[in-house]
Each structure stands twice: as C-alpha cells, then as structure tokens.
C-alpha cells in the first residue's frame, strides 16, 4: 500500500511537472509498467532485458509475460530499442521474426499505438508489461523499479 502511495505521488508530481528531480529537467524518462496483479516491484536491468527480449517468458507466479511495445516512431520506443534491445528497427524486426520462426516464443510483442493504449491495456491484460513516458503515467498504474530506482531517480537506466 505504501508503495502504491509512493507511485501515486511520483506520478502526480510528474504529471504536474513539479517533481523536484532531474527527470523533468533532462531527457524523457520511460517508466516500466506492469499489470497491477503482477507480483514484481523491482527488476534488475539485466532481468528487464531478458523479459523484453523474450528470453524470460513467465513471471515467478507462473503467469505468462505479455509484451506490449509501442509502434515505430515513438520516442520511448527508440529509447527502449537503444537501451534494452541494443538494436535498430530492422534488427528488432528480424530478431522477433527469427525468435518466432525458431519456435522460441509463441508470439511476438503486441503493438500499441499510443501511450494511452499501452497504459490501458497493461491494466487489463494479466501478466502484461510495457513502457510509457513518465509524463504519461497515471496514478493507477504500477511502476516497476529498475535496479531499485524509479524513473525520477538519478541514475535511472531508461532516460
């Protein structure tokens, strides 16, 4: 409960542009958001990469991970491709086609076409995980810390 209040406070402050942190003064920060029932509050950046690359496909509670990824052009997608996938668009496309063709995953990431869509779907699809700009995060979304850091913290990996 305390964690949720913390999230709400961070989100509200960010949305109002009043977070006294480097987040708003610097480049866009991207928040990792999961379905509210997903039993995870903190992920290492290494583990986050494994999840988004389809190398880890199940949460600890046994539920399947559902990846929601913004369609091309979005700034946050570019940041995720750079930092998490370490690929350009062509490599990203080939990567997922290859994974599906090799039967390593049942399906590729599901595309979302706006931050609103990502935010809405992640709250209704059990096991879903996505990324949205911190400025687009709403109070009812569950943000996951990366290496113990929130998007507003200095040293956060996705900024």
């Amino acid at each position: 409960m305390m964690r949720r209040h913390l999230m709400a406070a961070v989100v509200a402050a960010a949305a109002l542009g009043g977070v006294p942190s480097p987040a708003t003064a610097q480049a866009m920060a991207v928040a990792i958001v999961v379905h509210p029932a997903t039993d995870v509050d903190d992920l290492s950046f290494s583990e986050l990469k494994r999840i988004f690359r389809g190398e880890r496909q199940f949460w600890d509670d046994g539920r399947r991970v559902t990846l929601l990824v913004r369609a091309p052009v979005a700034e946050e997608r570019q940041l995720v491709l750079d930092r998490i996938y370490e690929m350009d668009e062509d490599q990203f496309r080939e990567y997922w086609i290859g994974k599906m063709f090799r039967a390593e995953v049942a399906a590729g990431p599901k595309l979302v076409y706006s931050a609103d869509m990502a935010r809405d779907l992640v709250t209704v699809i059990p096991g879903a995980i996505t990324f949205v700009p911190l400025s687009e995060v709403s109070a009812d979304t569950k943000i996951v810390r990366i290496d113990g850091l929130l998007p507003t913290d200095a040293g956060y990996a996705l900024r």
Binding site: T66, L68, V69, A71, P72, E89, F92, R93, Y95, W96, I97, K99, M100, F101, A107, G108, P109, K110, L111, V112, L121, I125
Partner: peptide
C-alpha cells in the same frame, strides 16, 4: 508495414503466420 507484432486483441487462441 508492421514489425513483428500484432494488436493486442486477445490472449488465446492466436495465430501468427509467416
């Protein structure tokens, strides 16, 4: 036009073909 991916309509069953 698309990358490997699909719009998130349903969880299962789902078919993706190449």
């Amino acid at each position: 036009q698309g990358v490997a991916g699909q719009t998130p309509q349903a969880q299962a069953p789902f078919l993706q073909a190449f």
